[in-house]
Nucleic acid binder design. Structure first.
Length: 428
RNA sequence: GGAGAAGUACCCAAGUAGGUUGAAGGGGACGGUUUGCUAAACCGUUAGACGUCGCAAGGCGUGCACGAGUUCGAAUCUCGUCUUCUCCGCCA
C-alpha cells in the first residue's frame, strides 16, 4: 500500500514513479475524496466531542433535579447527524481504499523504466557448457534416467503436474537439504509454515485483491478475511509472521527461511517451449525473508542476492543476474534482481531466484512496525524476500548442463552426500 | 462436527439493575531514595496504538477479541463473527 500522505504531498512525483511501471494514475479525484473525508471528519469529531460532554453532564443535571428532556431531544438529533456523517466518511474511505489497494509499489530510483525488454544483465557467472556431442533436453534426460515421471504425475494431479522418483526425488530432496544447511550456517531461522493461508495473508503480501485468480482457493467463505487458499510461495506466509506487531529496534533485522511447495494456477501461461519442469502447478522452493530497518534494506537485498548466487555457484551451474525494469517487478516490490539459470535446450536463461526489496509496501498492508530505542514513534519496517532457491528449474539445469556424452549426469559435489552417487547413469 | 466456558492494557486481574472508570488492584518494566556493591525495603512513573486539527505547545476523536445494533450515553444490553480452553464424536 502506498502512503496516502506522500501522495497528498507529492502526487506528481508518485505519478511519475508509477509511470515507470507503465501504470498511469490520476490522483486528482482520489485526493478530492480525501479532502472531503477530512472535512467531514473534523466536523463529526467536533459533534462527538459535544456528545461526550453532554452525556457526562446529563446524570449530574438529573441529580440536581433539572429537566433534561430538551437536552435529550437535542442530543438525539446530534446522534442522528453523527451517524449520517460517519456513513459518508466510511463511503469515502472505502472509495479511497479501493483506489489505493490495487496500486503497485513505487520502483526504486535506480530501477529502469519500462517492461521486461529493459531488464539489465548485471552479472554473468560461469560459461555456457560446450558439448562435443549432441546434448539432450531435460525432458528426455529425466525420462531416460528415470528421475521424473510425467505421465503418472498427470494421472494423479492432472495437467501441469509431475512426480519425482528414485534418484530424481533424491536430487530434489538433496537440493532442499543443501539450501537449508547453507541458510542455517548464515543464521537464518528455519520456519515450516501452514500451507493453507487466510485471505489476509495474501492481502498483506500484496497478492490480493488483484491476483486472487492466480492461486488455488478453498471453498469460498462469505467473510472475505476468513477465505483460505493454498500458498503460491512461502513469502506469503513469512510476510505475515509479524503482521499487526510492533518490534523493538534490537529485534531487527529478522531473517527467516522456509521450505514449502508452491502452488500456482499459472492460467494461460502454458507454452510449447515450457514443457518439462519449467512451469507447473506445484514446485518446491526454499524462500528467504527479511524484516529490516529502512536504512538497512538495501544492504539486505545485496545479501540475499549474494546468498542465492552462492547456492547456484555451489552447484557449479552457469547463470546470470538481471536487474529487472520497473514493469517486470512484481506489484509489491520496488526493486528486484533475478538469478537466471542457463537451460541449454531452450537456449534461454530461466529464473531460479527472485530477490526483492518491498520497502515499506507490505509492512503498510500488514501493519508491521518497529520502534527505535528511546523513541515513542513507530515506523514501518522494510520487507525483503528471495528464493533460495526454487528447485523445479534447477533439476533441468543440472541434468542439461552436467550431462555427459554417455547419457549420464554428474551429481554436483555438494549434493553427493544426500544422493549417494557421483554420477547418475541410465539403467538400460 | 456437537455441547459448555472464556477473551479487559507487557502479564495477571477487578469491573453487569448502562452514566465522575478520561478502566481499580497487583506483577513486571523503568526512574529515584538508602547502600562500598547487590538484594531487600520504600517513593514515583507506566495505554499503547491509530486518526485528525495545529508552525508548535497541545487539543479533539476512536479503542475493554472483531463487526454491527439499541441508547443522549455501552467494557457493561442485543445480534453476528473469530480465537482459546474443557468435554463428546470422528479420524491420520
Amino acid at each position: 500500500m502506498l502512503d496516502i500522505n506522500y501522495i497528498r504531498e507529492k502526487p506528481d512525483e508518485v505519478r511519475d514513479a508509477l509511470l515507470k511501471r507503465m501504470v498511469d494514475v490520476d490522483f486528482t479525484e482520489m485526493l478530492s475524496w480525501d479532502k472531503k473525508r477530512r472535512e467531514l471528519l473534523v466536523e463529526t469529531e467536533n459533534l462527538k466531542a459535544k456528545r461526550n460532554k453532554v452525556s457526562a453532564d446529563i446524570p449530574r443535571l438529573k441529580k440536581s433535579g433539572q429537566d433534561v428532556n430538551p437536552l435529550l431531544e437535542e442530543m438525539k438529533q446530534i446522534a442522528d447527524l453523527i451517524k449520517d456523517q460517519d456513513t459518508q466518511i466510511a463511503e469515502y474511505e472505502k472509495k479511497i481504499y479501493d483506489f489505493l489497494v490495487v496500486l503497485p509499489n513505487i520502483p526504486a530510483k535506480d530501477v529502469k523504466a519500462g517492461g521486461k525488454e529493459n531488464n539489465e544483465v548485471v552479472r554473468v557467472w560461469g560459461e555456457k557448457p560446450g558439448f562435443s556431442f549432441e546434448p539432450k533436453n531435460h525432458v528426455d534426460l529425466v525420462r531416460d534416467l528415470d528421475l521424473i515421471d510425467y505421465e503418472r504425475g498427470v494421472k494423479m494431479g492432472g495437467n501441469g503436474f509431475w512426480l519425482y522418483k528414485g534418484k530424481g526425488a533424491l536430487i530434489e530432496w538433496a537440493l532442499l537439504n543443501y539450501f537449508i544447511e547453507e541458510h542455517l550456517k548464515d543464521g537464518y531461522e528455519f520456519i515450516l509454515p501452514p500451507h493453507i493461508l487466510t485471505w489476509q495473508c495474501g492481502y498483506t503480501a500484496g497478492q490480493f485483491p488483484k491476483f486472487e485468480d492466480d492461486v488455488f482457493s478453498l471453498e469460498k467463505e462469505e467473510d472475505a478475511a476468513n477465505r483460505q487458499f493454498i500458498l503460491p510461495t512461502a513469502e506469503t506466509a513469512l510476510c505475515n509472521y509479524y503482521r499487526d506487531e510492533i518490534l523493538r529496534e534490537d529485534e531487527l533485522p529478522r531473517k527467516f527461511f522456509a521450505y514449502t511447495p508452491c502452488y500456482r494456477k499459472e492460467a494461460g501461461s502454458y507454452r510449447a517451449n515450457e514443457r518439462g519442469m519449467i512451469r507447473g502447478h506445484q514446485f518446491n522452493k526454499v524462500e528467504m525473508f527479511q524484516y529490516t530497518k529502512p536504512e538497512d534494506s538495501e544492504d539486505a537485498l545485496s545479501e540475499l542476492v549474494e546468498k542465492a548466487e552462492r547456492l547456484v555457484q555451489g552447484l557449479g551451474l552457469h547463470y546470470r543476474v538481471s536487474k529487472l525494469a520497473a514493469g517486470d517487478c512484481s506489484a509489491s516490490m520496488g526493486k528486484t534482481y533475478d538469478i537466471e539459470i542457463w537451460i541449454p535446450s531452450m537456449n534461454e536463461y530461466k529464473e531460479v531466484s527472485s530477490a526483492s526489496n518491498g520497502y515499506d509496501f507490505q509492512a503498510r498492508r500488514g501493519n508491521i512496525r518497529f520502534k527505535r530505542e528511546g523513541s515513542r514513534k513507530t515506523e514501518f519496517v522494510h520487507t525483503l524476500n528471495a528464493s533460495g532457491l526454487a528447485t523445479s528449474r534447477l533439476l533441468p539445469a543440472i541434468v542439461e548442463q552436467l550431462q555427459q556424452e554417455d547419457g549420464s549426469v554428474l551429481v554436483p559435489e555438494v549434493l553427493q552426500k544426500w544422493v549417494g552417487v557421483e554420477k547418475i547413469k541410465a539403467n538400460k
